[in-house]
Amino acid sequence: MGRMKFLCDAERCIECNGCVTACKNEHEVPWGVNRRRVVTMNDGVPGERSISVACMHCSDAPCMAVCPTNCFYKTEEGVVLHDKDQCIGCGYCFYACPFGAPQFPNGPAAFGARGKMDKCTFCAGGPEETGSQAEYEKYGSNRLAQGKLPLCAEMCSTKALLAGDANVVADIFRERVLRRGGGTDAWGWQTAYGGGEQKREQKREREGQK
């Protein structure tokens, strides 16, 4: 088994927020904490693009590098998890993460008052007995141990959000791109800002303002 990865196809995401809802419901994530969010660029402009963002389970995770208590660990399947009992809620991981994945139950509170960090676990639970009440309360459901994929991806109605072994995900995306004959960028500068229609719309707006 290789590495577990998420991939969001910006050509397919319709900003339904089904993934966000599925995640919150599955793990009973508290109010104010969003393990997954949908981000839309150029909202309302023709050619707008949305992607679903959570912890990307980085191969060289910056959160792991900055944690002063070394509470992060990476599983054999490449999932980045953390021990909430070790977390002091300093927030360093939040500043280090380029995706805004680490969330704090008390929001932007003072140092030490933010609460234990919470983030996407790839539905793999945490360092508690698998399937136990303690694991569910701290980290949420452990679907991976049941042979299932993260619920956000499995619930995605357009299958924009893919999850699983990186090789399988890459195969699915490759076939999809070949069939539709375009939209090779899952996400990137071109997808977000570079579309011809978006540029034309911006030009029209600029000319209209003059």
């Binding site: 088994m1 792991m64 590098a65 944690c67 208590t69 070394n70 509470c71 992060f72 660990y73 599983t75 054999e76 399947e77 998890l81 953390h82 021990d83 009992d85 070790q86 793999a124 639970g125 945490g126 360092p127 508690e128 007995e129 698998t130 399937g131 452990n142 991976l144 141990a145 049941q146 042979g147």
Partner: peptide, 25 residues
């Protein structure tokens, strides 16, 4: 840094798969 938290079990060591990694994969 070395991980300083509690040890975790692997997903195929769950009650469903009973350590059968191949079945889990």
């Amino acid at each position: 840094g070395k991980y300083s938290g509690k040890a975790d079990t692997r997903p195929w060591e769950s009650a469903e798969f009973k350590g059968d990694k191949a079945a889990w994969e």
